[in-house]
Design a protein around this nucleic acid. Structure first.
Lengths: 336, 336
DNA sequence: TCTAGCACTCGGTATCATCGATTGCTAGAG
DNA sequence: CTCTAGCAATCGATGATACCGAGTGCTAGA
């Protein structure tokens, strides 16, 4: 591993580069660290760090820039997320104090909050509906041949699906189906396939079956459950307009974002925070980005994630602090 | 007004500039138009057009670039939207042939479609819920003190609101409220304040009142009803990363987008298409953008709008064609 | 009224020198 | 053996200079 001094030099380079986005020279490091050593010594260390893959030189006569590995070391040696400035802590507290009501609205607002705190794009993954139990199922006729199923879940979200009907399905039958379904699915999760007892009325049973299969289809359920806030801030993080375009294109694909978050959080989470740097995740177009995510918990169970997406030279301690605080408060608010 | 030749020159400059994004010189215009006229003559015309405000010169020895006024003339003299290439027309047809089911999903997909057709950002405004009538109202208890009201509307959308309850409101009372509300609000629009007859049960009446005021609040209803697709394509349209940032920031503010669309469509719609060029609308940060919108109609009534947002040098005929076709097909599909 | 001709303007590009930040290396000090 | 001071070398950034060429405006003549 790296000896103390190398580590200190690397730390200094990363910190400085995060702040200025300019290659960092040996003189600067010698000045800003309190190892009383000369630039020449720092140079030797930096050369070694470059050989070992932690630093890179854009060109011969420039300073050093951290590689993904360099950032990785920097992040791993952090003892924990940084501390958020008092104003920001207060801001988070105020936000969650006022937060109330609809889950989705709240998650959406949370993504704006987090993006504001970090000035990166924020990603908030909603609790999977599998974890919530059914409170009510209702089949509502819209036209002769179309109906809508609305399922209210215990976490305050709603799943809906369209349904095609036989032409002469009466309103009473829809009402009967609603009652029957509410009675038998109530308290279960949408993923459990509870067996539906027959009602004696064949056409009713057929209707009930149609409904069950319509709402059982998890295809679109995954989709609409990620909230991306402050994507425009990615534009400020890069100066190549094409990089911006690629990143935004990714953020528009909800499915990709969801799997990305999943992948990152499954990969390596320490102290409840997972960080993916540069190419560590597979997406080519996000090679210049890092991701910081933390799960949030409802009643002790991790149910969703919040995270930020920023340039690899993001301010990791600050981002980790913001993500940690927000995930914690969000979980607490949702548990109440 | 402009004589024929001036108009032809202006048209040529606009067309060329839209295609190349490079200032257009007199020689080029002389070559590409079939007025058998020399560059010198074109120069005179261009100088005149500049004096009259239709063209501008980035610097003395460059070609001319259209001003907003120039684009305006160009757009106004179009006899109608262009024709979409056959592949694209087919693409639209296929899309709406497969489209089905949920309104919101469909509008969302429509925004992707339109963005794909034009390579600009697409904006789709959902029909205002005022136009739909209530099909069902249901109050579902989530916890002791919180309930959710779910209103299913005739157009297949859902409005929901959270509700605080007195501690000991029983499930039966919630059910009674649901029935009562469905019965009396069914068929009305959410904006009509129907008078609720008393039920004889004071606490039930109080609950019903609470629900009515909760769902009557149109505050958040406006919000979530605009779909922005392909925002990332704005990055390709500009080369200043800061312009991109500003535009994206606007697109993230749903409220602003909604009012913008409203404003544009109210302002000047000809042949069902409204175009706002550059600074014609008020938003400073969209000074380099133009907007093309068209209303779509359900059963002959205009209910929402589709549009695209692109750089002022967008391909107007193509964008107008795409918007026209999509709005027409969307309306037709929703009317079915 | 149009056009040919021509001088002029001015941004873009290439060339070149300079500057300065930074490095790697070497020799010597601790 | 480690550190440092010194020094030559590297290379991008900056700026000056010149040149080219696209494009213009103007004038004179058809």
């Amino acid at each position: 591993m790296l000896d103390d001094r190398k580590a200190a030099v690397l730390r200094a380079v990363v910190r400085e580069y995060i702040e200025t986005a300019q290659p960092v020279g040996s003189a600067h490091v010698a000045r800003t660290t309190d190892l009383g050593v000369s630039p020449a010594t720092v140079r030797n260390e930096m050369a070694a760090l470059e050989r070992e893959g932690y630093l890179a030189q854009p060109h011969t006569s420039a300073g050093r820039v951290p590689t993904d590995l360099g950032y990785r070391f920097f992040v791993d040696q952090l003892t924990g997320p940084g501390a958020l400035p008092a104003v920001q802590r207060q801001q988070v507290r105020d936000f969650f104090a006022k937060a109330h009501g609809e889950l989705e609205q709240m998650l959406h607002d949370t993504s704006s909050l987090l993006s504001g705190l970090t000035s990166y794009a924020a990603l908030v993954l909603a609790p999977p509906s599998e974890r919530a139990t059914v409170r009510s199922v209702q089949v509502v006729g819209l036209t002769d041949r179309a109906a809508m199923v609305v399922v209210v879940l215990s976490n305050g979200t709603i799943e809906k699906a369209m349904l095609e009907l036989d032409a002469d399905t009466g309103d009473e039958r829809l009402a009967a189906a609603s009652t029957h379904l509410s009675a038998h699915l109530g308290g279960t999760s949408l993923t459990d396939r509870t067996h539906m007892p027959a009602t004696g009325d064949q056409r009713l049973d057929a209707l009930v079956d149609t409904v069950v299969s319509a709402i059982g289809d998890p295809a679109d359920r995954e989709q609409n459950h990620v909230f991306v806030g402050g994507a425009s801030r990615m534009a400020a993080a890069f100066d190549a307009v094409d990089t911006v375009r690629q990143v935004l294109a990714i953020l528009e694909q909800q499915y990709v974002v969801v799997s990305l978050l999943r992948e990152v959080i499954d990969h390596d989470t320490v102290q409840g925070i997972a960080v993916s740097i540069g190419t560590e995740h597979g997406l080519q177009s996000l090679a210049e980005c890092s991701i910081v995510v933390a799960p949030y918990e409802i009643e002790g169970e991790p149910v969703g994630t919040v995270g930020v997406l920023g340039p690899t030279r993001m301010n990791y301690p600050q981002a980790m602090a913001a993500v940690a605080v927000v995930s914690e408060r969000l979980g607490r608010t949702l548990s109440a």
